[in-house]
Structures are given as C-alpha cells and as structure tokens.
C-alpha cells in the first residue's frame, strides 16, 4: 500500500480561503512593487503557493495594482504556466517535442497515466498531480525529459516513474 496517499480522495487540499489568498497577494505586491511591471512575478507567486489563479486571487491582484480584473485575466491566460483552472499540487510536464518523441516520451506518458489513473491534461482526484504535455524543455540531448514542478528528470524511463512520483506524495 505504498501509494495509498497518492490515491486517497482528499478534496480538502487545494482549497484556499479568501482571506489567505488576499493576504498572499498583499505580501507579493509589497515584495515586488505596486506597478504593472510586477504583474508577472505576483501571478507567478500566487501559482507557486496555490497552484492556480482563482477569481479571488485575480480580483485581489487587479485591486492592488490598480488594473481591471479583465486585464489581469487577459494577461494570465496568455501564459502556459499561469494556470487559471484548478490544478494539482504537483504539476508534471512531459516534453512532447520531436527529439523526446523519438526517444520514447509516449511510453513515459503512458507509465504516468497508468500509475496515477488519469489521462494527459487531467488532475488526480486527490489533487496531488496534474499531468501535462509541454513543448521542448531544453534537454533534448537527454530525452525523454519531464519536469515535476521545477525539478528536472532527464533520460527518464517508464520504470522510474513510480519511484519519482512517490517523492511528491
């Protein structure tokens, strides 16, 4: 039952209360400065803590930086890493570009899908993991490669997946 926690259904994760989110935004704006130039660092800071940008967060950011919330959403939605949909605590990105395709990225994706019982693009029910495909990650000489959050796994083999993902449970 090594992976019990990976499968357990616990929907309390990933739920942030409004006051906490607003406090986080306030902290980030103080840290990065109250100008539009700080918008990306602030958005990135919220995603780091809460894994996605909730409406609450975007409205709070808009207020703090004196922008319209449509402007904040419009900017965030441009960037792949600034998620506006709820995501898991850990984001797995497998490179799908040509060299990694040639080196077996598909087998890696299937190993992850089998282990987590989700498909590419989905999030586990306990909100622990989201599995995404990404464009070239800059490790083509060591493909296939995947990122889990900021951590890089070059030359990743399907039979290493269980051990790697366990580290994040």
């Amino acid at each position: 039952m090594k992976n019990y926690i990976c499968y357990s259904i616990n929907n309390t994760l990933n739920q942030f209360n409004m006051a906490d989110t607003e406090k986080l935004v306030e902290q980030l704006v103080t840290q990065h400065g109250k100008t539009r130039n700080s918008l990306l660092p602030v958005l990135q800071g919220v995603v780091r803590e809460e894994h996605f940008l909730s409406d609450t967060a975007m409205i709070a950011i808009a207020k703090a930086l004196n922008l319209s919330s449509a402007d904040v959403y419009g900017t965030a939605s441009f960037y792949t890493f600034l998620e506006t949909e709820p995501r898991g605590e850990n984001i797995i990105r497998v490179c799908k570009t040509i060299t990694c395709k040639m080196k077996g990225k598909q087998q890696v994706i299937e190993a992850i899908e089998n282990h987590l019982k989700i498909k590419e693009g989905e999030t586990t029910r306990n909100k622990k993991f989201t599995l995404l495909a990404a464009n070239c990650l800059g490790w083509c000489h060591k493909g296939p490669v995947m990122l889990v959050n900021d951590d890089v796994y070059p030359h990743v083999a399907p039979d290493q997946i269980v051990d790697i993902l366990d580290k994040y449970c």
Partner: peptide, 26 residues
C-alpha cells in the same frame, strides 16, 4: 533576474519587454 511563464514567443525581444512590463507576450 526575471522568470518567464512558458511562452516561446517571449524569446522574441519585444514580446519579452511586453512580458516584463506585465502584459501578454505579443
């Protein structure tokens, strides 16, 4: 140092400035 957020087009110099100014990387 500033971090990008997963957009290839932000490598284009003027898109990169837009991104640093808090806008879509156009």
């Amino acid at each position: 140092i500033r971090s990008g957020s997963g957009a290839y087009i932000c490598g284009e110099e003027t898109a990169l400035f837009e991104s640093m100014e808090g806008r879509r990387g156009e």
